[in-house]
């Protein structure tokens, strides 16, 4: 009986539903948004996380395995950001197409030069990423580089829709470049301003807009802030002009709040990924929001 059942299930699965277009599994909302921009209606995009989650620490949930099983293309951030969960999802999915090394496995961070590449890799230094800081999505210019590579990859995997991907991408690239110019013009007054960050998630953002980092709440990447470190930071910040203490939505509010009260520097919640819908609207709102919030503090 069991054998018959298994056989029946197997036949059902191997036949599979016939479908057109790419099935994309994106680990982060910004890469999901990019895949949607390029693919338009020709792709289906599943985004594994949202901006209120810590992308380092995601459970390899059954639902993720089920989605990875059906994907034609995994768009990962890379640089070991998802090392705690994506390998488990991929190995459990039984999907040849999306294994690392296959064309169906795309890493955004592999397309660009990374900042903060550690000189030494030692766990005593906290949760360091040997390849460099993985949070590249916060520099909109890098999205152009990553998007171009992603468009080529999607076209290679789905030649029938290549012209569509090409057209969608070309149109978006023009709009996005204009948006970057607009943001840079608006953010010009931010140049040279200092911020304190909760986690080292913002180097690409500060690098882009010419902000400087006056300190980090986490004594080491991924290590929770302790009171001694916070007190030392407060003393070090005394007398400095700092625009804001910036934290990602998933980080606990407490440490930042303490420092904000002690130092009179406002605490700002700055998402490190697209928070609204993972599409072009969401991408625009993300950067608009970050710049709005920082500019508002300046006045």
């Amino acid at each position: 009986m069991i054998r018959t059942l298994l056989l029946a299930l197997l036949c059902l699965g191997l036949a599979g539903p016939a479908r057109a277009g790419l099935n994309v599994f994106a680990t982060l909302p910004e890469w999901g948004a990019l895949a949607r921009v390029i693919g338009g209606d020709a792709v289906r995009v599943f985004v594994a996380t949202h901006a209120r989650q810590d992308p380092h620490h995601i459970e390899a949930r059954p639902s993720l395995i089920a989605r990875a099983r059906q994907a034609d293309l995994v768009v990962a951030n890379g640089a070991e950001l998802e090392i705690g969960w994506l390998p488990a999802v991929l190995s459990a999915a039984g999907n040849r197409a999306i294994q690392p090394g296959q064309p169906g496995y795309f890493e955004a961070a592999a397309q660009v030069a990374l900042l903060e590449v550690p000189v030494r890799v030692d766990r005593a230094d906290g949760d360091v990423h040997p390849a460099g800081n993985p949070h590249i999505g916060l520099d909109p210019r890098l999205l152009l580089t990553v998007g171009a590579a992603l468009q080529a990859r999607m076209a290679a995997l789905d030649p029938a829709q290549a012209a569509v991907y090409d057209a969608n991408w070309s149109a978006f690239r023009t709009r996005w470049q204009a948006a970057i110019d607009r943001w840079q013009a608006r953010a010009a007054p931010l140049r040279g301003q200092a911020i304190v960050v909760h986690h080292t998630a913002y180097p690409y953002f500060t690098h882009w807009l010419g902000l400087t980092r006056a300190g980090t709440l986490e004594p080491k990447p991924g290590v929770a802030p302790g009171s001694a470190h916070l007190a030392a930071l407060r003393d070090a910040l005394a007398g400095q002009r700092v625009l804001a203490i910036v934290r990602p939505p998933y980080a606990p509010e407490g440490p930042g709040q303490w420092l904000a009260e002690q130092s009179n520097i406002p605490l700002l919640r700055l998402p490190i990924s697209v928070e609204q819908s993972a599409d072009e609207t969401g991408l625009n709102a993300w950067f608009d929001g970050m710049i709005d919030h920082l500019l508002a503090l300046r006045r």
Partner: peptide, 16 residues
């Protein structure tokens, strides 16, 4: 497209 496919497996150190 072919070049992209051919280079994909070795694209700048994707994977661990």
């Amino acid at each position: 497209r072919q070049a992209a496919l051919a280079s994909a497996p070795t694209a700048a150190g994707e994977g661990p």
